[in-house]
Simulated assay, not measured.
Amino acid sequence: MSKKFVTQWFYAPLDTRKEIRPSGFLGLKKEVVDIHEAKIADLDNFSEQLENIYNGFDEMGYDVVNVVPISIGSSEPCHSILSNGKSNYLGETAFSITRGAVVVGKLRD
């Protein structure tokens, strides 16, 4: 007998951007590195995983009835630049991003 409700969750990695950084002796060489974006999930990966779960549920005879987002909280330092050029630490700025979801499916009648 099949279960009436099933769940599946997924978690998307952080998005990345390319950045050129100096390297080597005196920084004369340049290299391209991937930098993780702390506030942005990889939305291509996110949507692909969500689509795969929807299609998998459909093949098993389930309809998606709910999607519960998984949000991850974090913070980063906040600074202001004073008129004399010095930096003034103001504390932490909190933020959260949606990195994944729990998908709930219900067996079709």
Rank of each mutant, 00 (worst) to 15 (best):
Met1Arg: 04
Ser2Leu: 15
Pro22Cys: 12
Ser47Asp: 13
Glu76Cys: 06
Ser2Ala: 14
Thr7His: 07
Glu31Lys: 15
Gly105Phe: 03
Tyr89His: 11
His36Leu: 12
Asp44Lys: 13
Ser75Lys: 07
Phe46Thr: 08
Gly105Met: 05
Glu76Lys: 03
Val104Glu: 00
Glu31Cys: 14
Val65Trp: 03
Phe5Ile: 14
Arg99Ser: 05
Met60Cys: 05
Thr7Glu: 09
Gly27Arg: 02
Lys4Cys: 04
Gly56Lys: 04
Val68His: 02
Ile20Ala: 09
Ile70Tyr: 06
Asp34His: 01
Ile72Asp: 07
Asp15Trp: 03
Val32Met: 06
Gly56Phe: 08
Asn52Lys: 12
Val103Met: 01
Ser74Met: 01
Lys4Thr: 13
Phe5Glu: 05
Asp58Met: 09
Ile35Lys: 01
Asp44Cys: 11
Phe5Gly: 04
Phe46His: 03
Arg108Cys: 14
Tyr89Trp: 14
Pro77His: 08
Arg21Ser: 05
Leu14Met: 07
Glu19Phe: 07
Leu107Gly: 05
Leu28Met: 06
Val104His: 00
Lys106Glu: 11
Phe46Arg: 02
His79Ala: 08
Ala38Thr: 12
Trp9Glu: 15
Leu28Tyr: 03
Leu43Trp: 13
Ser74Val: 05
Lys18Leu: 10
Tyr62Trp: 02
Ser47Ala: 14
Asp44Val: 12
Met60Ala: 08
Cys78Gln: 12
Glu92Ile: 15
Asp44Leu: 13
